[in-house]
Write a protein that binds this DNA or RNA. Structure first.
Lengths: 252, 252
DNA sequence: CGGGCCATTGAAGGTTTTCAACGTATGTGG
DNA sequence: CCACATACGTTGAAAACCTTCAATGGCCCG
């Protein structure tokens, strides 16, 4: 059995319960599906693309990211993962992990058997609803990245990413007075935003000069969230957190 | 009752049956969930963001696209939809449509009650598996767009989009000798690829000069698919069609 | 025939990349 | 404890890529 106190499972529950209302019994039952709690060093691979997707992997603490590498060596980071996030949703369909998942900092992950989760969803349909809602949020965030890459300039992209991270981390209690931990290197940021690391550097300097952002050694502080959001054309509702609490068609 | 001969439902069945194996009985049952067949003129709105997602809307013929508009007026097209595609997957979770869906050409769509679909999935679990597999393919295509926008230059982006469309349309029998119908304007292509329409024009000219692509009046011909794919860094497996036939965790 | 949409072209300018170099912090082995 | 290696951030200059602006021509349709 797992010592569930070793790592706080609060972010995980906060994330899912924030999407779909659950009873104490349901939350407890969900917690007991966790079969393993592992730690990964910073810069370790958490999941490999193509591996069997028989387990659901949840970030419990620390940050991670998904990425894909192109044939020419270039790398696109397609999402940052915060505590409470599911690393990969392919267990819902194909049985094979869709993308590499990499630890940005030291990370604790919980693993549960996909089969057990599906079985438990028969008894508690709210589990599957929560999972689909979380998947929808994941998709909404991804779509917003697409819009950034297609339509926002460097300054707006960077601002948007920081607004997104602030919102997501705040949701799981990891922002204090506008400050949060985000140890991505400028190269990482470049690979996420479709920019060179040199230009990321200059973009961050400009945000600093505008007194909107302070960022150093992995600690980010947003000084004026409202102004930053205006600059980024950030729409709070676009990440899909708002509407997901309501009953969808899958609800009985 | 609907006259199911008015519009061929083959693309729809080809799409889902291509992802998950289904029996004749299942295919027939799925067909009978269709409650309405509507036609939309080119440039008509098929779905509006925020509308209730109580129906599943499937493209039966013609092409469409999803898009989002930014506060500054810029528009990002986030996906093109071909026959067999589901317009919006939010019925799985939130109950509200996620994005605008717009008809590129004249389009026929089938609608079914989301509730009926979910109910039918109890009897035929393969329905939900097929839906989740289709959703995963949709996501995989979206991720590939993200990679394009972040890491590919104009020539590669355009080439990649054309390779993608060729593959998807061929899957539903709409490509003949490398030629297919794709009536997007250069402005549409720009909004999809994150390029100005002027640069789209020049990019297409270059592809024409390289004897890879012919494109005029909505008719596209790919003269050398292999070379185009090489140029685009196109990976056939990246769209997620391959692995989805296999049983995932949701399979019993 | 006129209007509107779309494709095309040229020229100028802006944004971002690339290349190359340098500084700093951190860690490791001698 | 120093020498060295490594990773990351920073800077300048040149070049590449793409956008914007403005104008023109073709085509379809009322």
């Amino acid at each position: 059995m797992i010592d569930r106190n070793l790592v706080s499972i609060r972010p995980f529950l906060a994330n899912l319960a924030g999407l779909v209302r659950m009873s104490e019994e349901e939350l407890a039952s969900l917690t007991h599906l966790i079969k393993a709690l592992n730690h990964h060093q910073a810069h370790a691979t958490i999941l490999e693309e193509g591996a069997p997707a028989d387990r659901i992997v949840v970030i419990m603490s620390g940050l991670a990211y998904r990425f894909t590498r192109l044939a020419n060596g270039r790398r696109q980071i397609t999402a940052f993962l915060v505590p409470g996030d599911i690393c990969d949703y392919r267990f819902l369909s194909s049985g094979h992990v869709g993308q590499h998942v990499f630890a940005l900092s030291q990370v604790a992950v919980a693993r549960m058997q996909a089969e057990s989760f599906v079985a438990a969803s028969e008894r508690f349909p709210v589990f599957m609803r929560a999972m689909l809602a979380a998947n929808a949020v994941d998709e909404a965030i991804g779509r917003e990245w697409m819009i950034s890459l297609g339509q926002r300039n460097a300054l707006q992209r960077m601002a948007h990413l920081l607004c997104e991270m602030e919102l997501r981390l705040r949701r799981v209690g990891l922002v204090e007075k506008g400050t949060f931990h985000f140890p991505a290197t400028q190269t990482d940021l470049g690979d996420a935003l479709g920019l060179s690391s040199v230009h990321v550097n200059r973009t961050l300097q400009e945000l600093r000069r505008m007194h909107l952002v302070a960022m150093s050694k992995g600690i980010v502080t947003l000084n004026d969230t409202a102004a930053l959001r205006r600059l980024a054309l950030f729409d709070v509702t676009s990440l899909g957190y708002e509407r997901n609490g309501r009953a969808g068609a899958v609800t009985h």
